[in-house]
Nucleic acid binder design. Structure first.
Length: 818
DNA sequence: TAATTCGCTAGACCGA
DNA sequence: TCGGTCTAGCGAA
């Protein structure tokens, strides 16, 4: 065995990192690095698992005492204990261990050790600890040296190398089709896999045991399920992928494949180290990890992205996602149809295409968001596997953890359950929302504060350690309306992070403008700035989040109190300048530009406001609108104007519809479409009479009984186990009935239902769309409970009543408008 | 495993 | 048949 040394000059991309035990039972980090066409494994034994203990009294005495202790059944020892200086703690000891088992044993016992006040950073997974301490970015370039010893390569020095461009990662996806009997969901214990597809940038092939057709292009016929599984595994391994993509591989494809492979004794050696995928519980779901590579479950990713708000989906099935993202129609084959196609051989080609398209679609979704995910890997210093299954809170937390590390601070612990509960009990006041002036308004300017919450945090130096400092001048100069004040003498922890993130994002956005829209460099810049946007948008939420390590109710309440005061102050200034404030919501000013004023006056006003705002707070012009409509509330309090629902139209005829049924998934399509057309008629053409005609026409259509199902579906999410519902509404009733018919519905499923004619109450009439025959719908329900409520408040702003919509010729009752 | 508060509306159910 | 109270879901920011 030769031993050789290399310079730091080795380069590659860090695909995965995990921890393992070596033959001496010592913890080692395994690094999987893409070098050329290979993923190579390196080891690092240079970092020991550790955590911190804060001593009650003298750290030195405690240190000696601890070194003499042994912990747990294995009599674990502390390898090394060191006195360390930390910015935010005294008497801190760094305790190192041989492996994570020893660490775990010690941390349990030290919880109730008299001379130890607190334990810190004891729940950071070791691989993550390593990435943090070595400042490495998963999916990023690394530069390193290594030595070979006993056939294992040990890294010496390793560091993140900033390569300008993202490499071409090897990425491929697969998908399975399974046999389904009698309309039931497949069970891996008995139902075979009948088809599998694989797709990457070069090919898209289908494996099948089907005998019905031959000679299709890129179809591989296998003699048995066993042979097919082996062929799929071979294909995946031959490709040596960095990223394996699935659509719900966590919940379905991998567990299913594993079970079937087991049946035949096929080894699912998909890991870069030849290991099998490991299935772990991840909350209510599974997460499937492939060692040495990354498993990107596009379904998990889509769910994550939809929480970042920009991706708003009615349903999460792959067809809906493709339609929403790429505007393309993908044929859906229902699992009951798969069974039929399989047995009869009729439309077998369609089944093959469906299977192939599934893989292609999953791959496409993954590729679309891979740049963003990689940026999140960089920000959070977590693997693609982890970030793609994480949350906005987790990403912000990672950033704060990273900053704590860099500034030599101890990371705060996760709060105990009792504390979480206390925090939840103590809520606080949020943003200010002004009751709008209802009616049709012309000539509007909408202003908003750029990144309001972050800029308030920065400008007022809001942070836990600057809170209520001892200086009287800080108290005088920098008191929040919520009555706390913040030190102005030194930059706070929160502010320093946000300042950097905000600055970086602005630079990226400026740089973006220099690149051709849609070009690779543009897309990469876009992903970078978008990742930062996610952080900026969720930062405040994280510090107000009860389970946050960095929770501060005082800081959160100070942020909102300042924001309320700014938005109201600017409103007063606008009124003082002769504008009419129509509406405010948190960070926005809706101004009516009076006859004697112009856009230029608005610009001047904004400039004046900005010259008076502190720090990097900034008011911006969101847009000018020729018309806008605000409506009154429904039900009780009819005269009051409704907040959070309005519609605007700009000079180019572009509509902006906010809060109305049109943007909600839990309304019937026909009601939403009609509402949009009514808004359009009223705003674009100023023609309420036309709106009336549209509604009348839809009523007649509904009455005719010929409205197709797609127009009548309402989507709602099952948010908890069906048993735990106290109130059974239409969606719960429809779900219950569907389950009785053998449909599988889990928490989180989004169901589409229709109100049929059969039954008394609305709930009784509700049925899942797939069980409803064309034409079986309750026209009265759709007219009275969907169509009319969606349009009446808009039309009534013009003096019309419900009767004008329902009756034949009757015209307006007239009350002044326009 | 989990970001926040503010706000609107529906449908079930109850009692007058 | 009405209004009030409750649960529930979803959207705005």
């Amino acid at each position: 065995m030769s031993e050789r040394a290399e310079g730091i000059g080795n380069e590659g991309f860090l695909i995965d990192a995990d921890s393992a035990l070596n033959a001496q039972n010592e913890a080692e980090i395994r690094l999987f690095v893409r070098i050329g066409n290979k993923i190579e494994t390196f080891y690092d034994a240079g970092l020991k698992p550790y955590f911190y203990a804060i001593a009650n009294g003298s750290a030195e005495e405690t240190r000696k005492k601890l070194l003499a202790e042994s912990f747990g059944e294995q009599q674990a020892k502390i390898l090394n204990a060191e006195n360390v200086e930390k910015e935010n703690a005294e008497n801190a000891l760094k305790l190192e261990f041989k492996n994570t088992n020893d660490l775990t044993a010690a941390r349990e016992e030290l919880a109730s050790f008299p001379s130890i006040k607190e334990r810190r950073e004891f729940d950071i997974p070791f691989a993550r600890r390593y990435l943090l301490d070595r400042q490495l970015k998963p999916m990023g370039a690394v530069e390193f040296s290594f030595n070979e010893k006993d056939g294992k390569k040990f890294v010496g020095e390793i560091k993140s190398a900033d390569s300008g461009e993202l490499p071409k990662f090897r990425i491929g996806s697969f998908d399975l089709e399974t046999y389904t009997e009698g309309g039931h969901f497949s069970d891996a214990k008995q139902d075979p896999i009948i088809m599998a597809s694989y797709a990457d940038s070069e090919e898209a092939i289908v494996f099948t045991t089907g005998k019905h057709s031959h000679n299709e292009k890129d179809v591989i016929h296998c003699a048995s399920e066993e042979e097919m599984i082996a062929a799929l595994v071979n294909k995946l391994n031959e490709k040596n992928l960095d990223v394996i993509v699935t659509y719900n591989g966590d919940g379905f494809d991998f567990p299913y494949l594993k079970e079937r492979a087991q049946k035949y004794g096929i080894k699912l050696n998909l890991g870069a180290d030849g290991s099998e995928p490991s299935i772990k519980r991840h909350g209510m779901d599974n997460a499937v990890r492939i060692h040495g590579r990354q498993h990107l479950d596009a379904y998990a990713l889509v769910r994550l992205l939809s929480r970042f708000a920009d991706l708003n989906l009615v349903k999460y099935d792959i067809e809906s996602v493709v339609a929403q993202l790429f505007g393309e129609h993908k044929e859906k084959v229902h699992y009951t149809e798969i069974n039929e196609m399989w047995r009869s051989g009729k439309d077998f080609g369609k089944l093959i295409d469906y299977c192939r398209e599934d893989s292609k679609a999953a791959l496409r979704i993954a590729c679309e968001y891979l740049p963003l995910c990689i940026e999140l890997c960089f920000l959070a210093r977590q693997t693609l596997h982890d970030v793609s299954r994480s949350s906005s809170g987790n990403i912000v937390e990672s950033l704060l953890i990273g900053e704590s590390f860099l500034t030599n601070r101890l990371i705060p612990n996760r709060p105990a359950d009792e504390i979480v509960e206390q925090r939840i009990m103590q809520s606080f006041v949020g943003g200010y929302v002004k009751e709008p002036i209802a009616g049709l308004h012309e000539n509007l300017a909408v202003l908003d504060f750029r990144s309001l919450y972050p800029t308030v945090i920065i400008s007022h130096n809001i942070s836990p350690e600057t809170l209520n400092c001892a200086h009287s001048d800080c108290r005088e100069k920098n008191s929040a309306p919520s009555n706390n004040w913040f030190c102005v003498k030194e930059e706070g922890f929160f502010g320093s992070i946000l300042k950097r993130v905000l600055k970086q994002r602005m630079e990226l956005r400026a740089e973006m403008k220099k690149h051709e829209k849609g070009s690779p460099s543009y897309m990469q810049l876009h992903a970078k700035q978008y990742a930062l946007k996610i952080v900026l948008n969720s930062f405040y939420g994280y510090l107000a989040y009860a389970r946050s390590r960095y929770y501060s109710r005082e800081c959160a309440a100070a942020v909102t109190s300042w924001c309320r005061s700014y938005v109201q102050d600017v409103g007063k200034k606008a009124e003082g300048d002769g504008f009419v404030v129509i509406y405010n919501d948190t960070d926005s000013e809706f101004l009516k530009i009076p006859e004697n004023k112009t856009k230029k006056d608005v610009e001047n006003f904004v400039e004046k406001v900005n010259s008076e705002l502190p720090g990097n707070m900034q008011l911006e012009i969101e847009g000018f609108y020729t018309r806008g409509i605000f409506v009154t509330k429904r039900g009780a309090g009819e005269q009051e104007a409704a907040k959070k629902r309005y519609a605007l139209i700009d000079g180019s005829g572009r509509l902006k519809i906010v809060g109305f049924e049109y943007v909600r998934r839990d309304w019937a399509v026909i009601a939403k479409k009609t509402q949009k057309e009514v808004i359009e008629a009223v705003l674009k053409e100023g023609n309420p009479q036309k709106a009336i005609e549209i509604v009348k026409e839809r009523i007649a259509w509904l009455r005719s009984g010929s409205v197709p199902k797609e127009e009548l579906v309402t989507f709602t999410q099952i948010k908890k186990p069906l048993k735990s519902y106290e109130a059974i509404g239409p969606h719960t009733a429809a779900a219950q009935k569907a389950i009785k018919r053998g449909k599988q519905l889990d928490v989180g499923s989004i169901i589409g239902y229709i109100i049929t004619r059969a039954g008394k109450s609305i709930s009784e009439k509700a049925e899942l769309e797939e069980f409803v025959k064309q034409g079986d719908y309750d026209a009265d329900y759709y007219i009275t409970n969907q169509l009319l409520p969606a349009v009446i408040k808009i039309i009534s702003e013009f003096g019309y009543t419900k009767e004008d919509l329902l009756q034949g010729g009757k015209q307006q009752t007239l009350s002044g408008w326009g």
